[in-house]
Design a protein around this nucleic acid. Structure first.
Lengths: 360, 360
DNA sequence: CTGAAAGCGCTTACAG
DNA sequence: CTGAAAGCGCTTACAG
């Protein structure tokens, strides 16, 4: 409609807007950015805005970034994202929180790294792009030794602590989540509660077992009576459950509930329970951990489990970045004390009161 | 060690390198970028490289991007990434392929959008960042109507076709994958093969059913005899399997294999089969689709299923972007014909020969 | 209330 | 073989 004589091939720049509005680029910049401490006549403002809208002007973020020394990007490096169930939700949480602050999230995957050293190639790639902040997400390490460059920009760790104590971190409160499961089971009337644990060396292993013990102790129960170890897979849960409920045990010596280290184990537990001719939750209650899609809702009855706050972890990480940027940084409390995000129980159908009341 | 009198607070720029090497920035740029059609004395090259290394010089990609009009970023907008199982693998494939080409992947999530219009806010956000290419990934639509701006840059769709036929796309060959399952089952000796289908309106539904029919027809079998519809969840697979194998049917009229629309349904099928006192795969073979972690390996016996090439989809999308950038674009064949990526069967333990040979 | 000018850190004709 | 200079598209003191 409002076509000039030739279609501008390039996308319009601030200069085009200035020309169209009959003002300087300075003025265009001020009105479009609402620069503080700047007065512009309302009539001028309107002219500028109209011109910008008419031309479909969109500021070039690269240019702005170069000038302001702020790219408006935050980089997320994830350690072997593909192997983490639901890493997608960490990314989503980080991305949406970033968007809320007008930031763009960029991603680089780091090879699974059994050494605790954070890949510095990945960090450097982001630094070259002048990211405003850096998030490093890991699942395999308690503690991580980040490359020195990481300190040159606001940074936060997900799921691990900085060995140097300089970089703040956010992590799931696995211990608290596990303790709350015991509490939940005790409230339902259980006293003989088993834990199907694992020996795999990841932070979650220790946290969940500790939480189980916290809960048992708090309820005045023996935390060691029904703990068995197995591999953290369905087969392990199957084996553990057979060991717990199988032949050797008299029914009065059997646990009435089994809390599994993860949902995959719970899946195996269901199968073992069915084989034993028992039913969930009537004969035995079971609880999982991870809320690992699609297990809990695909099991029958649906599995009560504990959710990992993946989305929240991602979002909290970028919130922390923002805080570091604005508040300055070095002296933030988070650096020393990791921020723990709670792991809520999601109740479904696998917990009920035990068949017969159990005496203390 | 080689410290000057004051630690440079800022990161070194090309000017610092030039000064350190005693040459012009032009020369530094040429040697560091290996600019073609340019001669530089070897001795000079060495001096420059040493100076760059000594200072730890890293070129500022923002500045380079502004100058070259190429940001070195490709943008991925995913539609509701979180709800797609394994969207993480699409991201991973795209990211790694991008890295191979020295590109960085940025991500924006788009709200799940039941209309086929692609969100133009997300696209615009990337355009503002001068991305070199744009990928739009969807799972809920066959065909999508992209905003006009999407054409202003090399773009490719994952999992959907452009209604305008201008944007190339890559998608999984669900139909071929389903057909190969039937072939696999026939080769194992099955002739009475059931399909637990669904009516949900997503592209996968039609493709898989079509593939099932292709396979049955190719084997000279009736494609309609054992098709039942159910919801695409464990409960649906359970119901469908009961309908297929349950009371009403004489054993000779029962299918010997059930191919489930997805792995969740297969999970329900296992449960129904166990309830019926039958065993997988001795009495009935079952095959899933999706290779949805952690189902296939958590089931006993492990589930034979069809894998979706998520990683490959992501990688192929950025490959297509690269091709569009170099080869020019508009006249590429992909634009009209989607690139189909094969969905391979992953054989595990849930298929065996049927108990008794079945006559034609 | 508005604008001319410098400059962010690079790359790239162009000249020598 | 090497360098001076322009310019990518913005923002921001500074001056008027």
């Amino acid at each position: 409609m409002s076509a000039g004589k030739r279609t501008p091939r390039r996308t319009p720049g601030i200069r085009d807007v200035a020309a169209a509005a009959g003002v300087s680029v300075t003025t265009v910049s001020h009105v479009l950015n609402d620069t503080p401490h700047t007065r512009t006549a309302d009539e001028t403002k309107i002219r500028v805005k109209e011109a910008a809208a008419r031309l479909g002007y969109q500021p070039n973020r690269l240019a702005r970034g170069l000038r302001t020394q702020a790219s408006g990007m935050v980089g997320l490096v994830t350690e072997e994202i593909a192997t983490t169930p639901h890493a997608g939700r960490i990314i989503l949480g980080a991305q949406e929180e970033a968007s809320r602050h007008n930031l763009t999230l960029a991603i680089i995957n780091s090879q699974l790294n059994h050494a605790p050293e954070v890949g510095s190639r990945e960090v450097q790639a982001f630094l070259d792009r002048q990211v405003d902040g850096l998030i490093y997400a890991t699942v395999y390490h308690d503690v991580v030794v980040p490359p020195e460059e990481l300190l040159s920009v606001p940074a936060v760790l997900i799921g691990a602590r900085d060995i140097g104590g300089k970089i703040p971190s956010v992590m799931p409160d696995e211990r608290g989540g596990a303790a709350s499961v015991v509490e939940h089971l005790v409230a339902a009337g259980h006293r003989r509660i088993a834990f199907a644990a694992t020996a795999i060396d990841v932070p979650a292993t220790r946290g969940r077992l500790l939480g189980f013990r916290d809960g048992m102790l708090a309820a005045g129960l023996d935390p060691d009576e029904f703990v068995v170890e197995a591999e953290p897979e369905a087969a392990g849960g199957y084996a553990a459950t057979h060991a717990l409920l199988g032949a050797g045990r008299s029914s009065a010596a059997r646990p009435t509930a089994v809390f599994c280290y993860n949902d995959r184990m719970a899946m195996g537990a269901y199968r073992a329970i069915a084989e034993l001719g028992l039913a969930v939750p009537t004969d035995v209650s079971v609880v999982g951990f991870d809320n690992q899609d699609p297990i809990p809702t695909s099991l029958f009855p649906a599995l009560t489990t504990v959710a990992l706050p993946h989305y929240e972890l991602g979002a909290a990480a970028v919130e922390a970045i923002i805080r570091l940027k604005t508040e300055g940084g070095a002296d933030l409390p988070e650096a020393s004390e990791p921020q723990l995000l709670s792991c809520p129980i999601v109740e479904r159908g696998s917990v009920a009161a035990p068949v017969r009341g159990t005496a203390a």
